[in-house]
Design a protein around this nucleic acid. Structure first.
Length: 426
RNA sequence: GCCGAGAUCGCAUAGCCCGGUAUUGCGGUGGAUUCGAAAUCCACUGUCCCCUGGACGCGGGAGUUCGAAUCUCCCUCUCGGCGCCA
C-alpha cells in the first residue's frame, strides 16, 4: 500500500507509474476524492466532539461547585450532541474504509530501471550463467526421469489428496532434504539467521503482505479457524514485525526461512505443468530482509548475487531476467527472476523470484523504524533461494545420464553420501 | 477444553474498586555545565489536523453515560493452574 502522503503530495508520480503499467488513473483520482471527503467529515466530527467536550467539562465544573441547576441546564442543552457525534463518526469511518480498500489495490511505484513492457514478453535478460549442458543422447524430461526411477507418486497422491499433490520417494526425497540443508547452510554463512515460521496465518496479517486477489486464487483457507496456509515463508517472515517500531540498530534483519508452501494454482492447466513443476505443495528456502529504506536497493542486489552464487555452486545453467512493468504484480517495485535451463523442455523456466517491495508491505503492516523526527516505514525484500521441487527438476534434467540416472551436484554430495541417485525400490 | 489473573506512549510502570480525559522511570532528542567526556541539571519526547488552537489515543469491537483507561457484554492475545496430547 502506498503512503497516503504520496497521493496527497505526489499524485503525478503515481499517475506516471500507472502509464508505464498501462493502467487507467481512475482509482487514483477516486482515492484522492474519498480522502478529501473523509477529511471534511473528520473536521465536521471533530467540531462536534469539541462542543461535546466543552459541555462535559462544564458539567464537571458545575457539579464540583454544587450548582445542580446549572448541571441540569447544560445537560438538557447537549443531550443530542452524542448522537450527532456517532453519526458523523460512522460517516467518516465509511469513507476511510472505502478509501483504503481502493488504496490497497493500487500497485507499488516501480524502480525507474524496470523495463517497460506489456506482458512477460517484455522481460529482458539481465545476465547468463554457466554453460548449456551437452548430451550425446536425447535428454529426457523430468516427467520421464521420475517415472523411470520411481521417485514420485502422482496418482496415489491424487487418490488421497487430489491432483498436483505427490509423494516424493527414495533418493529424490533425500536430495530434497540435502538441498534444504545446503541452502540454509549457505545463507547462514552469509549472515542470515535461520527462522522456521508458522505455516498458517490470519487474514489481517495476510492482507499486509499479498495482493488481495491471491485470497481467491493462491491461498488455501482453513475453516473453521479462519486461517490461511502460507504460499511462501516470505509471508509470515515479512509480517513477523507487524505493528512494531523496530530499533534502527537491528536493521537490516536478514532471515533465511524454510517452510512448506501451499498454492491452489487456480486456472493452471496444460502439458507444461505436468510432473512436479507446478504443484500444490512444495518446500522452499527463502531469503528475507527487513531494511532501512536507504539500503534496500543495495540489499536487493545482494539477494540476487546470493542466488547466482548458489545456483553456480550447484553447477546449474541459468539466466537472470528483469521483470518488466506489465509482468510485475502489485507488491514489488523491482523484480528479478532466475530461470534455469531445462534440457528436456528445451527452455529456461522460472526457479527464483527476487523482489524489493520497498515500503509497500511495511505500510500495510505498520512496520516502522525509529528516527529522530518520528517513525518511518521500513523496506521489505524477499528472494527465493531454492524452491526444492523446481530445483530438483533442474538438477534431474541438467545432470541426467544416458541410462536415466542422475548425477548429484558436487556441493550436495557431502549431504547425500553418494554421487549418483539410485532408483526407488517401489 | 475448563478455572483464574492480566494487556496502558519505543520499553517498563501508576491510574481502574469509587467515571470528569494518562503518572513516573528508562531510553531518545535538544540545551546548560566542561578543554573534552562522564556525572549532574533543564526542556522536549504517541498520532493527526483547517496548528495562538483542536481532535484522537489506554489490546480489538459493541453498549451504558452529558462524559469511559475506569462500568457492562463479546472477541483476540499473554501469564498461572487443571485437563488432553506428539
Amino acid at each position: 500500500m502506498l503512503d497516503m502522503n504520496t497521493f496527497r503530495e505526489n499524485a503525478d508520480l503515481i499517475r506516471a507509474d500507472h502509464d508505464k503499467r498501462g493502467l487507467a488513473h481512475d482509482s487514483i483520482d477516486e482515492v484522492l476524492r474519498l480522502d478529501k471527503e473523509w477529511k471534511d467529515a473528520l473536521h465536521e466530527q471533530s467540531e462536534a466532539r469539541r462542543q461535546r467536550n466543552v459541555a462535559a467539562k462544564a458539567i464537571a465544573e458545575a457539579k464540583k461547585s454544587g450548582d445542580q441547576q446549572e448541571v441540569d441546564r447544560i445537560m438538557s442543552q447537549v443531550k443530542d450532541l452524542g448522537t450527532l457525534v456517532d453519526s458523523l463518526d460512522e460517516k467518516a469511518n465509511a469513507l476511510l474504509q472505502q478509501r483504503d480498500e481502493l488504496r490497497m489495490r493500487i500497485p507499488n511505484i516501480l524502480h525507474p530501471d524496470v523495463p517497460v513492457g506489456e506482458d512477460e514478453g517484455g522481460n529482458t535478460q539481465h545476465s547468463l550463467h554457466g554453460n548449456k549442458p551437452e548430451f550425446d543422447f536425447d535428454p529426457r524430461t523430468h516427467n520421464e526421469l521420475i517415472e523411470m526411477n520411481k521417485w514420485v507418486e502422482l496418482e496415489r497422491a491424487a487418490k488421497i489428496a487430489g491432483s498436483r499433490f505427490y509423494f516424493l520417494k527414495g533418493d529424490l526425497a533425500r536430495l530434497e532434504l540435502a538441498m534444504q540443508n545446503y541452502a540454509v547452510d549457505f545463507l547462514c554463512k552469509r549472515g542470515f539467521t535461520f527462522v522456521q515460521p508458522p505455516v498458517m496465518m490470519n487474514r489481517t496479517a495476510y492482507e499486509g503482505v499479498t495482493d488481495l486477489g491471491d485470497f481467491e486464487t493462491v491461498m488455501y483457507g482453513v475453516e473453521p479457524d479462519k486461517l490461511y496456509m502460507i504460499a511462501t515463508s516470505e509471508h509470515p517472515l515479512t509480517a513477523m514485525y507487524m505493528d512494531e517500531v523496530i530499533e534502527p540498530s537491528l536493521l537490516p534483519i536478514k532471515m533465511v526461512g524454510l517452510s512448506p508452501c501451499f498454492r491452489r494454482e487456480v486456472g493452471a492447466h496444460g502439458l507444461s505443468d505436468r510432473g512436479i513443476w507446478r504443484v500444490h505443495q512444495f518446500t522452499k528456502v527463502e531469503q528475507i530482509i527487513i531494511s532501512h529504506p536507504d539500503e534496500s536497493w543495495q540489499l536487493h542486489e545482494e539477494l540476487l548475487q546470493n542466488c547466482i552464487d548458489m545456483w553456480n555452486e550447484l553447477g546449474l545453467h541459468h539466466e537472470v531476467v528483469n521483470i518488466c512493468t506489465g509482468d510485475m504484480g502489485t507488491v514489488a517495485a523491482r523484480k528479478y527472476d532466475i530461470e534455469a535451463w531445462l534440457p528436456g523442455a528445451e527452455a529456461f523456466k522460472e526457479v527464483v523470484s527476487c523482489s524489493n517491495c520497498t515500503d509497500y508491505q511495511a505500510n500495510r503492516l505498520r512496520m516502522r523504524y525509529r528516527t529522530a523526527d518520528g517513525n518511518a516505514a521500513v523496506h521489505t525484500l524477499n528472494s527465493t533461494a531454492v524452491a526444492t521441487s523446481r530445483a530438483l527438476v533442474a538438477i534431474m534434467e541438467q545432470n541426467q545420464l544416458d541410462d536415466g540416472r542422475v548425477r548429484v551436484p558436487d556441493v550436495l554430495v557431502p549431504y547425500m553420501g553418494k554421487d549418483v541417485l539410485s532408483p526407488a525400490p517401489f
